[in-house]
Simulated assay, not measured.
Amino acid sequence: MLSIQTITAFDTSLFYWFQDRRQMHAGITTLSRNVSRLGDGVLYLLLGGLLALFEPQDGVSFLRLGLFAFVVELPLYLFLKNIIRRDRPCQRLDLKSVVTPLDKFGFPSGHAAAAFVFASVLAHVYPSVALLTYIIAILIGISRVVLGVHYPADIVAGAVVGIVCAKLCIGVVGG
């Protein structure tokens, strides 16, 4: 069985791999900033509202299910973050992040959790866009590592939280 030290060392090595790519390719920082902004939350609400307005049957189901999933995900994510209390790489390592994080702790990633809630609910209601939504969620997560505010394990944990919350809510509400 892998030790926590082995997992942490691998996670840190992978984090540095992303940082090396960012240093080698100047445009990756700008791209990562823009992709990360997709996960700030405004777009989720805007798209949900537009779908509910212009696509009344499935759009309203998506909005209702999405809001319920976010109501479940947000407190769980905050609870885990404040119980685990893992420092962000920009606080632990000799590295300045590209963006300023909103809080001190990084595990699990809130951007990844929200992106995967959104992707899972959208894929459930609109299966034809499932691949695209999950690719965007993955890119949002990767952008947070590139920007220096999360380790890769933070992203994986956030993705798990988001998917589990969405699937739980889909099971309860349907859609």
Rank of each mutant, 00 (worst) to 15 (best):
I138R: 00
L65V: 11
V173L: 10
T12Q: 07
A166Q: 05
S32D: 07
T30Q: 13
L51T: 06
L50N: 04
L51Y: 04
I155L: 02
Q5M: 14
V60H: 10
Q19R: 08
I140L: 00
E73P: 10
S61D: 12
L50P: 06
F10D: 03
H150R: 01
G39I: 12
R88P: 09
V160M: 04
Q23F: 06
A9M: 13
F79W: 15
D40A: 09
Q5H: 14
L147T: 05
P89Q: 05
I136C: 04
V156Y: 00
Y44Q: 11
D94F: 07
R21F: 09
V99G: 04
L78T: 15
H124L: 00
L2C: 13
L38F: 01
K104S: 10
I7T: 09
I135A: 02
D103H: 08
A113G: 03
M24K: 13
I136H: 00
S32K: 11
G175E: 02
L93H: 07
L147Q: 00
A159F: 02
R22L: 11
G27E: 12
H150M: 02
A114K: 03
R37H: 14
L67Y: 06
D58H: 15
A166S: 05
V145E: 00
L122S: 08
Q19H: 08
F118Y: 06
